[in-house]
Design a protein around this nucleic acid. Structure first.
Lengths: 258, 258
DNA sequence: CGGCGAATTGACGGACGTCAACTGCTGTGG
DNA sequence: CCACAGCAGTTGACGTCCGTCAATTCGCCG
């Protein structure tokens, strides 16, 4: 499948590649190829070797971890995002499974070529390091989100993030199936339903995938969004539980008195 | 405080610095200084700028995240470990607070010098990227541990890891206060007590900080340790919830049937 | 000797998972 | 065109896990 120059531009615009020379860019993407996958395709399974850096150009990809016959969603990626960068840099096995949620166009970049470029060009290598540091921060935020907040609080913060990301209108639409959202937030679908119902008291109404936040203030007071958990990572490699909060309306930054 | 050459050797042995030239090593550590902190000292607080890469040479350091007046332990570091590498690479603010649990000797390395070295030497930069990728994997493991396992299962796996790390003897000693362990495992101290009591049925007996695993097999069957959650990161920058499992005695690798 | 903090234990309540039944939508085949 | 199967989502009942509050014990240090 030939790579359209439009798509190449979009890859080039990623922070990972924005700063490098045309020569190096051609070099890294030389052996790359574009592939189209139907919804529900498994791209990677946990523990298998990773040979490519993946770049999602269209569609949606879910990253999930499993243990003891249970699965949990660690991230849902939207275009344009790269994934499994860490495994590529270490030339090791993947930590999560990846499968498409919708039919998706994905660019597959040779991991070997990427590592070669890193060894040759310190500037590019530095950019990769920054990207990885950003991803690290994203997962740390997700871990804090999971350990410190209850289910309803996680949902409330997710809604506030989504609202901001989609332009700030009072009503917006959930980007994924509710069962995926539930797994991402670390709860069961049944519990997500109940959590939505609870948020009715805070002015949230739900109609299928349409959510409207009637009274932002009480919801904010419940959610207590925090720069150190909910801030947006600089777009590029997808950070876990990526959230955007354009501005906080009086979110008190509280610090624990050890 | 002068840096003893013994300590310098130990820093040099870290995977971060093992591969670089003597010149570059001197360059990075040129402005570094050693400092001694009493127990309970706050080294960094969440959200503040990070100017140094920290290297723990003696003692113990706790990394914690806070939200809404609650705190959770994200990692407990033991010598020799570096920390806040990601923040240094991004030249940004810290994601977690750090404070000493015991009196500690800590080497403080100029973040600016580190970044300069990365830009100059692609090989070193690559090593930093690998280190960051390893850290990333560590947090992903911690997140899976938190989302997929219950409290008792997390404790069981922690005990198995500690036993292996300390040489495999049936009885070993917990390295930290139980309240710190509880926070690391994502539960309250009261709940940790009860979890220990529950493990009595699986042959675990507790006596102060002394733990002995009487019958390993039933405990393993409960814990279901998993290479993709509990494997050991290559020592260096401290990975979150670092665990060591030398060998698994029949840990079935189960995969979720989506 | 007195006091403080860590750890344990019990009682209680709330949060969350599980099981089951029901609704509504969609795509398929008769 | 309609009947039906299948799946997502919701709701209710129930049990379990876990956090909170309180009381007690123990060891350590002043």
């Amino acid at each position: 499948m030939p790579i359209r120059s439009v798509d190449l531009e979009r890859v080039r615009a990623l922070s990972l590649f924005a700063g490098i020379s045309d020569d190096l860019f051609r070099d890294v993407l030389g052996g790359a190829f574009l592939q189209r996958f139907p919804a529900g395709t498994t791209l990677l399974t946990e523990g298998d070797p990773v040979d490519f850096l993946y770049v999602l150009l269209d569609g949606a990809v879910e990253l999930e971890g499993t243990w003891n016959d249970k699965a949990t969603t660690l991230a849902v990626l939207t275009p344009v995002s790269t994934f499994v960068l860490a495994s590529v840099v270490l030339d090791s096995t993947g930590l999560m499974s990846a499968h498409t949620l919708e039919t998706s166009n994905i660019l597959m970049v040779s991991g070997e070529a990427l590592r070669r470029a890193m060894r040759r060009d310190a500037g590019f290598c530095f950019t990769v390091a920054q990207e990885l540091a950003g991803c690290y921060g994203g997962v740390v935020r997700a871990l804090k989100n999971q350990k410190l907040r209850g289910g309803i609080e996680r949902l409330a913060n997710y809604l506030i993030s989504q609202q901001a990301r989609q332009g700030g209108d009072a009503t917006f639409t959930l980007p994924h199936e509710k069962r995926v959202l539930a797994s991402l937030l670390g709860m069961t679908p049944e519990n997500l339903s109940r959590a939505f119902a609870s948020l009715g008291d805070y002015g949230v109404t739900v109609n299928g995938p349409q959510v409207t936040i009637g009274r932002p203030t009480p919801l904010q007071r419940l959610a207590k969004p925090d720069l150190l958990i909910d801030s947006r990572p600089p777009a590029g490699e997808a950070a876990l539980s990526a959230a955007e909060v354009e501005r906080w309306t009086g979110a008190a930054q509280v610090r624990a008195a050890s």
